[in-house]
Design a protein around this nucleic acid. Structure first.
Length: 484
RNA sequence: GGCUCCUUGGUCAAGUGGUUAAGACACCGCCCUCUCACGGCGGCUACAGGAGUUCGAAUCUCCUAGGAGUCACCA
């Protein structure tokens, strides 16, 4: 059997991490099995459409490398791949279901339904449609339709027995028929509901494995009834546990910002995002955690899927992102980081040198700005920074050291890290103090920053001789002034 | 509330009757070290609770509790 999976989002907003993970798993399963991955847009709810949403889906899938073999914008032999372009198909099958007795026309008004609902609520019962219109004769139905009465088509669900199926992750699921309602298959506006459309499309598109969120776990038996009525083979079901924001809430764009695009905005690498969410609810068994997309496709199997929900942990993603950043070649890193450098760097320094210092110290790309601000200009700083207990430095004992260091540095032809380092060690020796007594003050003097990506000599090399000496001079006079 | 499902440390998780109950993130400590980070070493913390079955239960059964999903002319 040729595996065919699909990702079938409705274009009603942004794509968040839970959606992306569903797409990822469907993609991985298809790729692992040498099958096809299909994108289908489910836009039958004409009221909830969001203008840009379709494009966000296309863009995200392309950007992440979750390439689809068939889809709205690339076509395929099972198209169209947008439900709004398949309207007649659903109508046709809805009527076929009526003929087979698996569905029926319903003319009940909203008023009657609301009344029934209120009644049920008053009695403390769960509302369930009473199959009122099922008793209508064929003639009555014809007459009403001819008279232009609005109608829907409802699924006719047996009142007795149990409906069950085998889910690949949750195992056997069985639901009493009596708990299922005669859902609407075709709305009065002529559009199908998900209940009908997903079945028709998955079958017509020859989807073999339906991979989707577990919110469909208990309604799947109803869909199976439709497959059975039509004499179609049921697909294999793979329901996924949800990705949570915390113990109680599902991840949502509203109360967090875990959309894919938000994470990219925050400086996360797409590879890290994919890698992290792949492991949120699935694991390959071993201890390895870093996998490229293709490596994931190689090892992905259903056995690794878990049944329980998983909380999205930004901390771990952040760690993994750091791993990905560090694994980049210097060139690749500079390429990725360029926009951030351009945004926050105003002075001219050797980008390669800066990148070398910064790359191993980054967890996200946006941290670049804060980490390199001292490069642009010496910030306002307090001379308290010269105090460091472990280095045994104070503003007072730093002053003379800085003067000596400044003189030594000025005499250097070769203003590189190594040369600077040995020069400053000499200063320490001459003053008969430990290296930290000179390296710490120098770093503070030229950066005015407590924590910097690199030591005193690395930063001196980065800034260059002229700038370094200028900053030394400034800091020396600042100290002289403030120590009076 | 009915129905469906879930439950190993703060988080992700290995584990499928016999283990000192892995590993990772986070946190803490130490080491490395010109600050920080990286790296190395070590520590902390878990089988939701209770009954069974069994020589033996995180693993099997039942009950309880907690949680999630669903109960739309949304998907």
């Amino acid at each position: 059997m040729k595996v065919r999976t699909r990702f079938a989002p409705s274009p009603t907003g942004y794509m968040h991490i839970g959606n992306l993970r569903t797409a990822l798993y469907a993609w991985l399963f298809a790729r692992h099995n040498n099958g096809k991955f299909i994108l289908r847009i489910e836009d039958t709810d004409r009221n909830r459409l969001v203008e840009e949403a379709g494009n966000v889906i296309f863009r995200t899938l392309k950007d992440t490398g979750l390439n689809y073999d068939e889809g709205p914008d690339i076509g395929g032999e099972y198209g169209p791949y947008v439900q709004s372009e398949r309207k007649e198909i659903y109508g046709k099958y809805a009527r076929l279901l009526v003929e087979k007795g698996a569905a029926y026309y319903c003319f009940c008004t909203k008023e009657r339904l609301d009344h029934l609902r209120e009644q049920a609520a008053a009695e403390g019962k769960v509302f369930k449609y009473d199959k009122h219109c099922m008793s209508l004769s064929k003639e009555e139905v014809q007459r009403k339709i001819a008279a232009g009465e609005e109608y829907v088509i409802r699924q006719n669900i047996p009142t007795q027995g149990e409906a069950s199926y085998e889910d690949m992750v949750y195992g056997k699921i069985s639901v009493p028929m009596s708990d299922m309602e005669d859902n609407i298959l075709l709305k009065s506006d002529g559009w199908p509901t998900y209940n009908l459309a997903n079945v028709i499309d998955d079958h017509l598109m020859e989807i073999t494995h339906v991979i989707r969120g577990m919110e469909y776990l208990s309604s799947t038996p109803k869909y199976n009834l439709l497959y059975d009525a039509l004499g179609w083979q049921r697909p294999v079901y793979i329901h996924l546990p949800p990705v949570m924001k915390d113990k109680h809430k599902k991840l949502s764009k509203r109360n967090g910002d875990a959309s894919y695009e938000d994470l990219i905005q925050k400086g996360y690498l797409k590879e890290a995002i994919l890698n992290y969410i792949a492991l949120l609810g699935w694991n390959p068994g071993g201890e390895r955690e870093i996998y490229s997309l293709n490596e994931l496709a190689e090892v992905f199997t259903l056995e690794g899927l878990s049944k329980s929900s998983a909380i999205f942990d930004i901390e771990k993603l952040t760690w993994m992102n750091g791993e990905y950043i560090r694994a980049l070649s210097l060139e690749a890193f500079i390429e990725r980081a360029r926009p951030y450098f351009e945004q926050s760097l105003t002075s001219h320094v050797d980008l390669k040198k800066l990148a070398t210092l910064i790359q191993p110290r980054l967890e996200t790309l946006v941290q670049i700005g804060e980490k390199i601000s001292f490069v642009n200009a010496l910030p306002e700083y307090s001379i308290d920074l010269y105090s460091h207990k472990k280095m045994k430095t104070t503003p007072e004992n730093s002053l003379n050291i800085l003067i000596a260091a400044r003189q030594k540095m000025a005499s250097l032809e070769d203003f590189t890290n190594d040369a600077l380092y040995s020069a400053l060690l000499e200063v320490a020796q001459e003053a008969e103090v430990k290296s930290g007594r000179v390296l710490w003050p120098v770093r503070i003097a030229i950066t005015g920053t407590a924590v910097t990506p690199g030591g005193a000599t690395e930063i001196a090399e980065l800034l260059g001789k002229e700038e370094t000496l200028a900053r030394m001079d400034f800091s020396i006079s600042k100290l002289e002034r403030e120590l009076q």
